[in-house]
Design a protein around this nucleic acid. Structure first.
Lengths: 313, 313
DNA sequence: AAGATTAATGCTCAATATGAGTATTAATCG
DNA sequence: CGATTAATACTCATATTGAGCATTAATCTT
């Protein structure tokens, strides 16, 4: 029959000025989730309720990501379907996780984790991540060599594309494709039946079920979306400097941005306005503070707003 | 509990050279659909099987659209969740609908219908649709006037945005937003409890459940996607002229394209190649025939490919 | 056969948008 | 006071985009 167990899974993202973080349960091994309850008004309402109940965090911007089905169960168990969402949370709202209800049903605390802990290779802007990526690529290479020779061509091409090697350029939106290639190659712990762990700084932290795949989908979506919709502002506090905004973009995208062009484009869009105040936290020339013009965005919610992310050479 | 009835719904699109068509059942009142069966390998596999069983059409390019939940049922019925997909079908493959298994479970034939029958106002390229759009906008205006005066401002702004009035420009991707505004205003038959029908050439054909909403989602997705991914080729036959390609884009987007710029950009992308043959069907200077370079696309599946759709003035 | 019609093509032009620099200014820190 | 940290101002070449004019090559009509 078509009765399936439907689960809602949320990827809550917050940017604390340093790195994007995701809300996790079970010591970082799963994402907040809950059942779709018949009495909730909508999927979104159901998800908000579940997350707030489970973690105490108020959910802001919310958008559906993708619906996954697990593999068909052998026994008569109902099939599990996961409807996943991306939720963006402003710093401040995220604090409630540590106070309100910091324990999930299993008794382990809800915790915010650097999303690059799960995908170290996605942080291309961070130079000290390079060695680990080198190790990973070496293992990938070894795996390819172990496959039947007629697949070499295809696999190497795929590797070059998704990891931006041999003339291809790094595409920060291919988070899911990279994860899936690594999964296929058995290089992430989830791919093994036994929980062998592996070296987390190379293969990233593992998660239960397909939660890391969902996280990859969320990262890819967010990276894609900040280029054409002003969603980055959903992660910013009320007031912020242009540098802080740029850092948010850089840390989300995992790559550097040309500062002057970034400012030019942001100014050009007219989505923010000066507050008149200045920030002198960084020790340097004080930076003007800006605020997001929510009213304007309502108007052109649709028009799009690109952010200048430098092309890789 | 979290047991819900999960339904898969497909929007199959074909372009026959004249207009985009969608595959419908029940005399055009519903979309092909089927349950998620526990023994199918994946959601996609389940959907392909259901559609082919129900309509006899082989599904080509397939992508997930969105997962909808209906309103909470009053009685103890399980809740219905619909996972919707967009499927693009090449002409030829679509023929099978008329031969193989032309009757659905209820005994009514599967039929391809002009998608603008369901959304007449979406066809902005068609001049004779203008009067009907005028009537619709008039009714929308009347409805706004009936609302409480403090909502007028907001509603008129929303109307101007989604319908491209008073200085706003028409955005062909807002299919869903337009439908939802009309729904809210009670201007589409689905919004009424009783099936009063209404004048289909103004309000469009109605569908059961939320199938027209799903169709709107599919149209919006396709219109958005042809701008940055080469999906339009999924609707083209093996060989085609540039003019045919342009018409496919125009009919899908519901707006005109600048011919020379269109050709320039298509040529620039290098996604197609001449076959060496010519078509002299149209009675004019013979047009060169092209074919889509599938191999190239595998390489830059990701790179994107924009199509020049003219901005509205 | 002449002229209308239907398209395909070739080419120009201005307005933006983009990527990558250099140079200057204004503050803090030690 | 000078090093450091940023913010900010400008320049420049190149690419992209929107819009148009002009020409060519076929068929269709009379």
């Amino acid at each position: 029959m078509s009765l399936v167990q439907t689960e809602l899974v949320a990827v809550l993202v917050v940017f604390n000025g340093d790195t994007p973080r995701v809300l996790t349960l079970e010591d970082g091994r799963s994402l907040p989730n809950g059942p779709l309850r018949t009495d909730d008004r909508s999927l979104q309402a159901s998800l908000r309720a579940a997350v707030e109940r489970q973690t105490g965090v108020a959910v802001g911007h919310l958008e559906q990501l993708y619906t996954f089905a697990d593999h068909p169960p052998a026994d008569g168990e109902p099939r599990r379907v996961a409807i996943s969402y991306l939720a963006l949370t402003r710093v401040g709202a995220e604090r409630r996780a540590e106070h309100a209800n910091p324990f999930d049903d299993a008794g382990s605390p809800a915790a915010w984790r650097d999303w690059y802990d799960y995908f170290p290779w996605e942080d291309q802007a961070c130079p000290h991540a390079a060695p680990a990526i080198g190790v990973l690529l070496q293992r990938l290479d070894d795996w390819i060599t172990w496959q039947s020779p007629e697949r070499w061509e295809e696999l190497r091409q795929r590797r070059d594309q998704v990891f931006g090697l041999n003339g291809e350029s790094w595409n920060d939106e291919l988070v899911l494709q990279r994860y899936e290639l690594l999964y296929e190659a058995g290089l992430v712990p989830e791919a093994q039946m036994a929980d062998i762990g592996g070296d987390a700084c190379v293969t990233g932290l593992a998660m239960r079920h397909d939660h890391r795949r969902i996280l990859a989908t969320a990262m890819a979506r967010l990276r894609a979306k900040i280029r054409y919709r002003p969603v980055i502002y959903e992660l910013m506090p009320d007031q912020f400097t242009l540098f802080a905004l740029q850092q948010a973009v850089e840390r989300v995208a995992g790559r550097h941005v040309h500062k002057q062009n970034f400012r030019r484009q942001v100014a050009h869009q007219g989505l923010i306005e000066e507050t008149g105040e200045e920030s002198r936290e960084a020790g340097g020339r004080p930076a003007r503070l800006y605020r997001f013009r929510r009213s304007v965005v309502m108007e052109r919610a649709v028009a799009g707003s690109k952010l200048p992310i430098v092309r890789a050479r």
